[in-house]
Design a protein around this nucleic acid. Structure first.
Lengths: 338, 338
DNA sequence: CCTTGGCACTCAAAGGTCACGAGTGCCAGA
DNA sequence: TCTGGCACTCGTGACCTTTGAGTGCCAAGG
């Protein structure tokens, strides 16, 4: 096991390296931190830490930098979540309160996160899976053409065009709309298939075709649109990545454009807990030199989506985690209110 | 005036520089192009071109590179629009045909443009201003709460929550919905205000409050949502910008995050013509070393929105213009069909 | 047994020198 | 007006040296 002081040394190394972006040596450490021991002692500790794989040196005659494993230990054992200052909290609330609709909430959240953390922010749209149906609307656009509009409790709207097997009258449509809504409004998406299963049977023979078609489209929409969207921002912060740009930044930008990758990234976090993935812990190849801090947010006690930031492994974890958590909470509040 | 040959020299310089990314000298020019004259002659021509500000040399003993003015002349007089190859056209069509809804069309278009041009693609969502109303739906969510759903002919859906001054009955709502639709369906957004102006008067005194509120929200939606959205992609291509990354790429990324800036950029292009803005011709400071190629696209003969790419001034103009134009056409077709 | 000062060693980064060569401007002659 | 020749410029890259932060190891002291 590592002694108390060695952990302290690791913490000091992480903090200094995050601050200066330069390998940190034993002498500098004793000067900037009150460790109460001499550089030589620190050197011994460093040797031990390196032996265990928590730090490494880029080249023989340089200082040490934390490894992924080192950051992991730091995050798990040494770092708390740094709460935001009151003015910062104020600013968050004010900024988010101005949002007019869901798109706006998400857009503002992204900007906010990017600014607070000075990193790339990723915000997932509230997922449909855990949402409930607020209303289903059917509009007749042409004799055999119906538009389906699905409205969720999170304020999201999805629409689909349906070509019916036969012309549909306004009355029949109104009837279907009423019956459909009475069954699904307020219910969870996941429950809908079961709830509408026997609906066609209650209609006249000659209308069942249409009813089935409409229901099929509805279910399809529920499933298909569960494929979640997200918004990213603050990519300009990537330029603060390091001095060795092109090679570092490129794969990250590429990964960020692959929504699938990002969704997977966020999705890996369990429930609404805060999750930190460091360097090689990220499955995607382009992101092995980045860390992802993600957390679930939701309108109630349950998380409906995730948000987080992507930044260099060399990031201010306590601060970033604090900002991410705070933003998630406020967004949750906003969603609950609207 | 510039002689024929001097223009030819300029064209050669632009082409070589775009290809090699390195200043081009007189000797290399005569070797790679059949100008029929000696390097010395070319040197004289170059001196003349430099005198007039079409080319410049980074330092005394280096070759020449085109200036913004040089590119301008190249684009205006020397370069055509290079049509795409048949396989490329095929690929475009196949790729876009797979789109399922408006979001998907825009998303696919962005990817396509970014891949074809290997630059940053920007696609504006079809603007509401020039669209027509397909349907207005009013839903009663609570006694005094109504949701307004606006569906456009481009398939876009906007929704707004309305708090009414007094409870609204289902019948009254259905009545309003019917009258509203009969007036505005198929009409242009810009005409709507006039069309509904006298609508409150035809209602009973005690319902006018509600009617006015709903109409106000509708008009507000029309105006507010004319604030257009857009999607960008291919930012990873920025890494091919040059060797002097950080300084170049940063302001561009920042500018790309400012939707306002981009909308202005696209908006400056008149009508549906192809517009090329080179370097300092772009008002925004961060984009003075980039060129923007934009063109309008639409479902009919009229442009409903713009799309384009942002890249280094040193870009393959004919090829880029060809790709942008082709994509715009196909997107127009897709929109017209759906 | 842990800590400390001393010491020799390593090696990236920074600076300096030098030769190379692509590119230029200019001029005299065709 | 074009061309070949020629002297000149100057950024680039190769090569070398110096510098200094940082290391590992060791022997002495608490």
């Amino acid at each position: 096991m590592l002694s108390e002081r060695r952990l302290e040394v690791l913490r000091a190394i992480v903090q200094d390296y995050v601050g200066t972006e330069e390998p940190v040596g034993s002498k500098a450490l004793t000067e900037r931190h009150r460790l109460g021991v001499s550089p030589a002692t620190v050197r011994n500790d460093m040797a031990a830490l390196e032996e265990e794989g928590f730090i490494a040196q880029p080249h023989t005659s340089a200082g040490r930098i934390p490894t992924d494993k080192g950051y992991r230990l730091f995050v798990d054992k040494l770092a708390g979540v740094k709460p935001l200052s009151t003015p910062e909290r104020r600013a968050i609330q004010n900024f988010l309160d101005g949002a007019v609709d869901l798109d706006d909430v998400v857009a503002r959240t992204v900007r906010l996160l990017a600014q607070l953390t000075r990193q790339v922010a990723v915000v997932q749209y509230p997922s449909l899976t855990r949402s409930t149906v607020r209303h289903v609307e059917l509009l007749s656009l042409a004799p055999a053409r119906v538009m389906l509009v699905l409205i969720t409790d999170t304020g999201r709207v999805e629409q689909r065009m349906i070509d019916c097997p036969a012309p549909v009258g306004e009355n029949a449509l109104a009837d279907l709309r009423a019956r459909l809504n009475s069954r699904v409004v307020g219910r969870r998406f996941t429950d809908v298939p079961q709830l509408v299963q026997d609906l066609p049977e209650s209609f006249e023979q000659d209308e069942r075709g249409t009813v089935s078609t409409v229901l099929a489209t509805l279910l399809e929409t529920l499933v298909e649109e569960t494929e979640e969207r997200l918004m990213i921002g603050g990519t300009a912060n990537l330029t603060r990545f390091g001095h060795d740009f092109p090679l570092t930044i490129r794969p990250v930008l590429e990964a960020l454009e692959e929504q699938v990758v990002l969704l997977k990234l966020l999705g890996e976090a369990k429930g609404s807990e805060m999750t930190v993935r460091i360097g090689h812990e990220n499955a995607h190849e382009g992101l092995t030199s980045t860390s992802v801090v993600a957390v679930g947010y939701g309108s109630g006690d349950e998380a409906v989506a995730k948000l987080g930031v992507v930044g260099p492994t060399r990031m201010d974890y306590p601060g970033t985690m604090g900002a991410v958590r705070a933003v998630a909470r406020y967004v949750g509040q906003i969603l609950a209110e609207s």
